[in-house]
Design a protein around this nucleic acid. Structure first.
Ligand SMILES: [Mn+2]
Ligand SMILES: [Mn+2]
Ligand SMILES: [Zn+2]
Ligand SMILES: [Zn+2]
Lengths: 139, 139
DNA sequence: AAAGGCTTGCAATGGTATTGCATTTTAAGC
DNA sequence: GCTTAAAATGCAATACCATTGCAAGCCTTT
């Protein structure tokens, strides 16, 4: 992804395109698995941890990334699809956490199935996390 | 639930029935919503927080309760059904978190629908959390 | 009664999230 | 380009919650 494209993408989400933000966006864009703050920090050391924290925070707030709680203790982050914007998120896909490699994937192509709820319960948002073994680790 | 019954239930899960454990089990049994360690601590104050922590821990380990991460920052706990024992958990139902009252419910009667995964992904365990408004709050 | 094993209570540690504030950078207006 | 206000950054501090270490207490068995 070119710098130009990175910049445009940030602007589209009303995020001021600073150097750090472009770097992080590019990094998220390159990898297929979701990434934790700690992992991001490792990858960008010696960048400041808090700046990275706030970068992820604003990305999430502006509909550029969504966070995934895979039970590992810290949330992981992954890029949203086109459906998300500054107004609202719209990530309705399955998340898969591999118990072997500990990676967490957005299965963008795999929608969350219809849910049946008891009478008078109103569904707003659904989180579906599947634990198991990923294709890479299935050997 | 009688003391006798509480004791039997603990023994069935290979948990030594101490006073504290029977009290906590009874408490979990009385409430319909899942409960966090903090809330349990409030309810049992001035009982020791760590003892309560370890009580929940061993209950979970022995298949008596399961923990639910509803995104509120701390896990909540609820009694398992008959399917769970010392060997393994088998809680495959929907969890519902109300954004109004912040309570989290096990919808024991509502199974998790079948999931489709990409080729070569192996499913082991599924967590399904629905956020929304519960029947009580739906007015 | 003594001994061993498990439980409890309290203190301490660890990991991660979040905030406050001074400084630096950015973007806009002149 | 220079000035200036707003936003972002870096570092220190704080806040939570989970987890562990250890000494004391309780129970059961011999
Ligand atoms: Mn996702
Ligand atoms: Mn449940
Ligand atoms: Zn894997
Ligand atoms: Zn409610």
């Amino acid at each position: 992804m070119t710098n130009e494209a990175l910049e445009q993408r940030l602007l589209k989400h009303q995020i001021k395109p600073t150097a750090m933000r472009m770097l992080v966006l590019n990094h998220l864009n390159k990898t297929s698995a979701a990434i934790s703050l700690k992992a991001l920090y490792d990858d960008f050391y010696p960048a400041d941890r808090i700046t990275l924290y706030r970068t992820l925070k604003i990305f999430e707030e502006k509909g550029l990334v969504h966070s995934i709680d895979d039970g590992s203790g810290a949330p992981k982050f992954a890029l949203c699809e086109a459906a998300c914007d500054v107004k609202e998120h719209n990530d309705s896909h399955i998340h898969f956490h591999c118990e072997k490699c500990n990676k967490t994937y957005c299965l963008q192509k795999f929608d969350i199935p219809d849910i049946h709820l008891p009478k008078r319960f109103i569904q707003k948002e659904v989180n579906l996390l599947v634990n198991g073994i990923c294709d890479q680790c299935a050997a």
